[in-house]
Amino acid sequence: MEQFTYYLPCIYAFLACIGFSLLFNIHGAAGMLICAGGGALGWLVYLLAAPLVHSDITQSFLAALVISAWSEIMARLRRCPVTSYLLVALFPLVPGGGIYYTMEHAMSGETALFLESLLHTLGLAGALAVGVLLVASLARLVTNYQNGHHRLPGGKRP
């Protein structure tokens, strides 16, 4: 039973990402599998990190790091825009539940709970953002370094 708690959510995330990759008009099995694989991988990291860090914001951050790195690598390999893979693979981490529970607390007039879940939702979104940002900046540094020798001073990268 223990293993199912790891496998099942990842499989759900995988299939859900396949559904959403259709919605963003991704054609071709390879693209879909990369997106869905990224989503499942991210959630696996999220779950595996749980006993280590005990905070879902940090878990989200780590998962976002892994997903961005995966998307950057895949985009380099297939010479495609990174966005294509990143958009769909991040879906399982988007705090949809947070938005819903925040709304629910607001409706039932529980101000303390409302504020708490609002800040928590924003925290999760912030963790995602920082994770994506960090990897994207590093990837940019690497590209700039690789292209460094044929680059004009002050110009855009070629």
């Binding site: 959403f20 963003f24 879906f91 938005i99 995602l128 940002l133």
Partner: peptide
């Protein structure tokens, strides 16, 4: 609701700021 969440806008916003 996951079909509506602004994941795309948010990720792109972050990449632009970066």
């Amino acid at each position: 609701l996951m079909a509506l969440v602004p994941g795309i806008a948010f990720t792109n916003a972050m990449r632009d700021i970066m």
